[in-house]
């Protein structure tokens, strides 16, 4: 599998570290809504198909990337820097909601 880092170009997956479900959104830091925190910390989407994921180019430029990957075919349809704001290219999930 190759991931095309926006900075480094296509690199082998062995240079990347998976950093989890990219659909999670962190509650406001001062929030005391335990259900929201619980969803953020523990709930993960596990779709068969397109999935928003965070990968770090750990063995390269170390940027975190927002990747849309098909979990069935490993096909990657989009990659952008995670720090660049904007909705992921694929459906976002409300915290606490089960898929």
């Amino acid at each position: 599998m190759l991931i095309t880092c926006p900075y480094c170009g296509p690199r082998d997956v062995s240079e990347f570290a998976y950093q989890g479900d990219g659909n999670r959104s962190r509650p406001d830091p001062s929030s005391t809504d335990l259900a929201a925190w619980n969803a953020y910390v523990y709930d993960r989407l596990n779709p068969a198909g397109a999935h928003n994921e965070i990968w770090q180019h750990a063995g390269g430029c170390r940027a975190h990337l927002a990747v849309v990957r098909d979990t069935l075919s490993h096909e990657i349809s989009s990659v952008r820097f995670a720090r660049e704001k904007g909705a992921p290219a694929h459906g976002r999930r409300k915290s606490g909601a089960k898929p």
Partner: peptide
Amino acid sequence: QHLEYFLDVV
């Protein structure tokens, strides 16, 4: 990695 994640993503 933990700190980099927060700086980049959160």
